[in-house]
Design a protein around this nucleic acid. Structure first.
Lengths: 304, 304
DNA sequence: CGCGTTTACGCCTCACGTAAACATC
DNA sequence: GATGTTTACGTGAGGCGTAAACGCG
C-alpha cells in the first residue's frame, strides 16, 4: 500500500470515471488502473466492481474511501506544515457562467495568481448551456468547483451563497421610442432577448413575468451575453442586462432604461463544491472568489 | 513523500541509530539512509543533524515525528480493518530475564504462536547481565518490549506491573545439617549463592539482609539460575530459589527449605515498552504475557 | 460501434544491496 | 581504530505511457 495507490483509488472513487480521476492525478488511465489493481492485491480486497461498464465501488471500497481520504489529507497537511507553505499548488479547474466570465473573472484570476503563484488555473466557461452542466462537472470530478446561479440540487454537493446580481430592463431608443416602462403592449409587440431556457437568467425572466401576470412574450434567446447585448443595441427586442452593463450602455445612449412595476428578481450566485472534497485548495479558492466577485463591473468586452 | 520514507524516518528517529532502524524496516542501512535523504528532499527540510557521529533529530524532524507516526498508525489501521485481520504479523523481538526464560517463556511462546500464527517471535534472553540492559535495548529500539524485574527509570519508558515472584531459602541437606532456619552463624560460615549484582534477585538479597540486620555474607554469584540451583544442590552454599523450584527440589530431598524471621521480599515483574510506541503489536503481546506469566512453573530444566 | 477499463509491451526510472569511503569520537 | 552514516555503482524490479484488446451497453 502506497500513498500513490491510495490517491489513485480516492480519485477513482470520487470521480465519475477513471478518465477524470487520471487527469486529477496526472497519470494515464492505464497507470491509474494499475495502481488501483495493485492496491487491491496489497489489501487482498476487491475495491471496484468491474462487471458493469463503469467501475463501481464495492462495500470494501466504500469502507476504504474515508480512510484513504484521511490519509491523503494528513499527508497533505504534513507537506503544508513541515514545508511552511500554503500547499496551494498544482492545477485548479473551475467553472463559471459567461456572465461571470465577462465581468469579474479577470479579477478572480488576477487575485488568485497573486495569492497563489504556484497554482495553475484552468477556468472553464460554460456559455449558457443547461443550468446543471457545471454542477454535474463538479460532481463528476472534472472541476474542483463552480460559480453558478441558483442553489445546489444534489445532496452530494454544497453551495455557499456569494451574493446577487441585479438586472435592468433596457431597449434600443429606436425600438422603444418614448416608452419609459415595460408595458404589456410593448411585450406583445416585441420579443424579449435573453439567455436560453435552463439558465438562471431565463428563470429570472419567468419569475418576473409571473409576478407581473404578463402573458409569455415572444423570446429570442442566445447563449452569449455579448450577443444578447448586441441584439438589444441593434433594437431587435427588449431585454435586461446586468445593472452595470445597462448603465454603461444607457449613458452612451445606445440603450434606454425601462422601468417596471416590479423589479426583476436578483440572481443569486453560489460557490459549488463537492461536499466530500475538503481540500484546502477549494476552500482557499472560495475565499479568493468571495473577495473577487463584483457584479458592478461593466464587462470588459464593452470597452471597445 | 511515500509511506516507506515516513516509516524509515520514524524508526530512524525512534531507534538509537540507523542500524537498529534498518533492522526494524528490514532494509539495509544504505537504503534506510537514502529513504530519509529522499524524504528530506521531498519535504525540502533537513530532518537529521549529521554533524555529530550519530544523526540527531532537528526541530523540523521533531515536528514531523508525531505526524509520521500518525500516518503509519493509520496505514496500519487500514490494513488491519480492510483486510479483516489482526494485523499482528512480522517480527516481534522481546527480552526476558533468565528466570522467565526457564519458567513461563515456553508458555508465552506457545500462546503467542497459537494466537498470532503469522507473528515471528525473537525472544532474547538476558542472562543476568546488568539490570538496565534489557530496558536500554527496548529504549534503543532493538527490542519491542521486555519483561524485567523492577520499575522503569526513564521517562521515555512505561512499565506495567505483571505480578511478583517469590523465593524460598534453601540449602543442601549435607551442608545445613539439622538447621531449619537461616541464622547469622550459618550466613557467616557458608557463602550465599545468587545472581550477580545489578540483577533484581541480587537486590532482593540486599534488602533481606538489611531488614534482618545481617552482616554481608560471602557471596558466590553466577549469571545462570541453572548453575545457581546446581551449586545449591551440590552444597556449595545456601541461597534462595523461586518457590516452585525450591518446593520441587525439597520434595525430591535434594534441598532443604530454610525458615527466616522475615520472608524474602517479592520480586515484582513489569512489562516494559517505549512510551511512544503505541503499536497494537506491543499491546497485544502484553496481553499474551499477562495470561502466560506464571511463577509457579517449576522450570523445565528441572524435569530431568 | 462508442465508451470505459484492462492487458501487452517496450522503456526507463528508481530503489535495492554490496562495498568502499567518509566523518566523528 | 571503532562506530555510524553516506556515496558509488551495478543490478533488477516496477511504474510509466502508447497502443491494442476486451467487454458492456
Amino acid at each position: 500500500m502506497t500513498l500513490k495507490q491510495l490517491e489513485a483509488f480516492y480519485w477513482a472513487a470520487s470521480c465519475a470515471n477513471f478518465s477524470l480521476a487520471a487527469e486529477r492525478v496526472c497519470v494515464s488511465i492505464s497507470s491509474l488502473s494499475k495502481r488501483i489493481a495493485e492496491l487491491e492485491v496489497s489489501l487482498g480486497v476487491i475495491l471496484f466492481d468491474r462487471s458493469g461498464q463503469r467501475a463501481l465501488l464495492t462495500d470494501a471500497g466504500a469502507a476504504l474511501l474515508p480512510r484513504a481520504q484521511a490519509m491523503l489529507r494528513d499527508a497533505e497537511a504534513i507537506r503544508r506544515d513541515v514545508t511552511h507553505d500554503s500547499g496551494i499548488r498544482g492545477t485548479c479547474r473551475f467553472g463559471v457562467g459567461e456572465l461571470t466570465a465577462l465581468t469579474w473573472l479577470p479579477t478572480l484570476v488576477s487575485n488568485a495568481r497573486q495569492r497563489y503563484p504556484e497554482l495553475r488555473l484552468e477556468p472553464s466557461v460554460d456559455a449558457g448551456s443547461s443550468l446543471g452542466a457545471l454542477e454535474r462537472r463538479v460532481h463528476d470530478g472534472a472541476l474542483d468547483f463552480a460559480v453558478i446561479a441558483g442553489r445546489s440540487s444534489s445532496p452530494e454537493m454544497t453551495s455557499v451563497d456569494l451574493g446577487e446580481g441585479r438586472f435592468k430592463w433596457v431597449g434600443a431608443p429606436a425600438l422603444v421610442g418614448n416608452a419609459r416602462v415595460v408595458t404589456a403592449k410593448l411585450l406583445a409587440s416585441t420579443p424579449v432577448i435573453t439567455l436560453p431556457p435552463g439558465t438562471g437568467t431565463h428563470r429570472v425572466l419567468d419569475e418576473w413575468l409571473g409576478a407581473n401576470n404578463h402573458e409569455t412574450p415572444q423570446r429570442l434567446t442566445c447563449n452569449s451575453w455579448g450577443v444578447v447585448a448586441g441584439l438589444l443595441v441593434e433594437g431587435l427586442g427588449i431585454g435586461f442586462l446586468p445593472v452595470a452593463w445597462a448603465d454603461q450602455l444607457t449613458a452612451r445612449g445606445e440603450l434606454r432604461s425601462l422601468g417596471t412595476r416590479h423589479a426583476l428578481g436578483p440572481l443569486r450566485y453560489a460557490f459549488y463544491r463537492r461536499r466530500d472534497d475538503t481540500r484546502p485548495l477549494v476552500t482557499a479558492m472560495m475565499e479568493v472568489v468571495r473577495e473577487s466577485i463584483d457584479f458592478s463591473v461593466p464587462g470588459r468586452w464593452m470597452r471597445r
